[in-house]
Amino acid sequence: MSTKNWPLWEIFVRSKNGLEHRHCGSLHAADSDMALENARDVYTRRNEGVSIWVVESKHITASNPENNGELFEPAQDKVYRHPTFYDLPDEVKHM
């Protein structure tokens, strides 16, 4: 058994310029350089990407689904943030 295990990295790939990086999975690597090299072989074997980000998994803080109510429900009753909330006569164009 190895003395120390390779840490886990989260991999984000930009499929083409103009699009955002998207999370596509994770892998183990000794450091960020190796994580980038491995990510190329594991996640972009068929031209899936033009750019890769790697982040060590322990640096990601995620929200807890148990708190989804207090986090996300307040947005649900704010219908006035959407354009359809406002009544306008049909004659108004381009608005």
């Binding site: 058994m1 190895s2 003395t3 120390k4 390779w6 000794a30 450091d31 190796m34």
Partner: peptide
Amino acid sequence: GEWVRDAAMAHAEKKQ
């Protein structure tokens, strides 16, 4: 492969 994994980790720590 164990010595390779250990060497890679030692190298990464040294670089850091």
